[in-house]
Design a protein around this nucleic acid. Sequence first.
DNA 1: GTTTCTGCAAAGGTTTTGCAACAAA
DNA 2: TTTGTTGCAAAACCTTTGCAGAAAC
Lengths: 152, 152
Amino acid sequence: MEAALNEKIDAFLHLKGLRRTAQRDVIIEAAFGTKEHFTADELWEMAKSIDPATSRATLYRTLNLLVESGLLREIDLGRDQTCYDPNFVEHPHHNHLICLNCRRVVEFEDPHLEVLGDCITRRLGFIPSTKGVRIEADCEEFRTTGTCSRRE
Amino acid sequence: MEAALNEKIDAFLHLKGLRRTAQRDVIIEAAFGTKEHFTADELWEMAKSIDPATSRATLYRTLNLLVESGLLREIDLGRDQTCYDPNFVEHPHHNHLICLNCRRVVEFEDPHLEVLGDCITRRLGFIPSTKGVRIEADCEEFRTTGTCSRRE
DNA sequence: GTTTCTGCAAAGGTTTTGCAACAAA
DNA sequence: TTTGTTGCAAAACCTTTGCAGAAAC
């Protein structure tokens, strides 16, 4: 596991008076050992490949902790289950483009969007903070052929 | 019910070989009788105030039909349940700003964002279509006082 | 008349939780 | 030793579905 991440987790746990356990370490290792988005169940599979004894209850509890700490973020990919994004530690300002047809997700950053988003936010009387912009679109293949080979 | 909406629903039902029933009308009336976003359960309450006999099963089935027809849109407000937005019939291009603290939602439109969003979409190899941009922020009260009176 | 729709109750799937044993600090 | 954690099984929750009777076309 990356050293910076490790420290952040220690800091969060200590601040909250929580404990570092072997089970949590396994789940954290699984969650941040990938750059892919995942569901709770997908994470469970990944964690079990590290420690087959990983329990669902602990996984859900740890997942909520990681979200609360800000290290992991829930994102809406239009799937039935909640998805989690482990990439905000390395890229705190990234956004998502989602193909409404095949559900493919592309992460991107754009300075103009950053500025414009802040403008709009202020205009509406809010103060910009964590800003997660999501764009929905159709992929080229879908528009051209009417379907998409990546479709689920 | 608005005449234009009525026609759109008729057209959709006819196209699909589906039937117009009293139960569906009640649910449609409830859904488009408000400009607020709602969950399935909130819609159930609204529908029951028109017809107390409204059943959950029919409500869920009709809800899925309305989403399929494009008249109603699922939106992610960061709540536990799926929320639905009845305002896309009147404002097909609106976006949402969501306060991460109190979950307040503001709808807005912005021509610059429209253009920039299309640009980004094309740059990433996609073709712009239904574009729903979502911005997350903190409301002023939260930033200033550390909490927010609207918080759930 | 034929086909779709409704409503009930049951099932399905995900996430949370009470509790007793266990482990970290 | 104190307090937090785990894992099981059960519960809670939202949503979907099979089926028989009812309604639309």
